[in-house]
Design a protein around this nucleic acid. Structure first.
Length: 352
DNA sequence: AACGCGGGGGT
DNA sequence: ACCCCAGCGTT
């Protein structure tokens, strides 16, 4: 594989991405975290909003986690935002706000693994480190006929070694980005553009009709069903929210008060269960189902029912005991929520 | 090594 | 319906 050919291809075909206009390690870092498991097209508007609101590591460190999560809302994998915020505080407090310059230091940051440390070190500081992402695995698997799994320790080592070997005499930042960009634009997962590929004569997969078999497929994940019964508790001028604090989906995001069941439950059974287990001495009536959605994620399907609930006593007196937060309708946008809750809220309060 | 963690887009 | 996306942290 002639590296010169790859770099020429990159020079002619690379996209004009906002984070390619800077070598500021803070911006490079933000872009890499946002791009984790996220398609670039989806990442761009989030990146632009993020760096506008938090133009440097100090502004990010000083922000509340809640505000950071609001900006992350809809992007998914919210631990990225929590770790980003925490790492910004580490950079301010332990590195005097100076972004760490070496791979090994960058790797210590929360939410930064081998890929991201390699990407930031190579792109921002020209350190010779591999950045092996899904694109790189796909390109190398096909061109060199690598049948190693990318999840095993030996497989990871094989891909890193291959990159280190290839990048020996070139600028690491450009090389890593070129390889990734080639995977994103040319050597795509489905329907790669093999006919006009600059490497097709030497590509193992193309020459051996194995393009569809490489890279090795990941094991399929099982999808679990969950049943969320939400309660839309309105009172004078507002609604009640609760912060999700368990180590679970949507940690530290907000939602309506929730009662999860392990199977589908109808409104009368829910009324009974709620009375006996949760709202023991508080009289209430479940009125109607305001909204329903089957919210499908890659690893779980959430069957979400949203019920109106009328509580006879003044629920705000009990709100603290249940950890509820009383907010007005306009304040809703100040709280980070999942797409499910966002859609439900809009439907219930603005389309009824 | 396996699993949990979101949501969107392409086919 | 299935696959994949500039992966990481925890178990």
């Amino acid at each position: 594989m002639k590296i010169e050919k790859l770099l020429n291809w990159y020079h002619e075909n690379k996209r004009d991405l906002p984070w390619r206009r800077t070598k500021n390690p803070y911006f490079i870092w933000i872009s890499e975290i946002i791009c984790q498991q996220t398609s670039v097209a989806n990442a761009i508007p989030y990146y632009n909003r993020f760096v506008e609101k938090f133009p440097d590591v100090f502004s990010l460190a000083e922000a509340s986690e809640r505000d950071v999560l609001v900006l992350w809302q809809g992007l998914g994998y919210y631990s990225r935002a929590r770790n980003l915020h925490q790492s910004a505080q580490i950079i301010v407090n332990q590195f005097q706000g100076e972004f760490p310059t070496q791979y090994q230091e960058i790797l210590q940051l929360k939410g930064v693994g081998e890929y991201t440390a390699g990407a930031v070190a190579s792109i921002a500081f020209d350190e010779k480190q591999p950045a092996v992402d899904g694109n790189v695995i796909r390109v190398l698997s096909r061109i060199f006929g690598m049948f190693e799994s990318a999840v095993t320790a030996s497989g990871k080592k094989a891909f890193k070694n291959k990159v280190m070997d290839l990048m020996k005499n070139t600028k690491p930042g450009d090389f890593n980005q070129a390889l990734m960009e080639f995977g994103a634009l040319q050597c795509t997962p489905q329907n790669p553009l093999c006919e006009n590929c600059i490497f097709n004569l030497e590509c193992y997969a193309f020459q051996n009709r194995a393009v569809a078999d490489l890279p090795l497929k990941k094991k399929k994940i099982s999808v679990k069903n969950r049943y969320f019964n939400y309660f839309v508790i309105e009172h004078t001028g507002g609604i009640l929210l609760k912060k999700r604090e368990e180590n679970n989906i949507w940690k530290n995001l907000y939602e309506f008060p929730l009662f999860e069941t392990d199977e589908l439950i109808d409104i009368s059974a829910l009324q009974t269960l709620l009375q006996s287990k949760i709202l023991k001495k508080i009289p209430f009536i479940l009125s109607e189902r305001l909204y329903y959605k089957k919210h499908k994620l890659s690893h779980q399907t959430i069957h979400a029912d949203f019920y109106g609930i009328i509580i006879i006593t003044d629920i705000t007196k009990h709100a603290e005991k249940y950890g509820f937060l009383s907010i007005s309708i306009p304040q809703f946008v100040q709280y980070p929520v999942s797409e499910l809750i966002k859609t439900a809220f809009q439907t219930i309060f603005y389309e009824k």
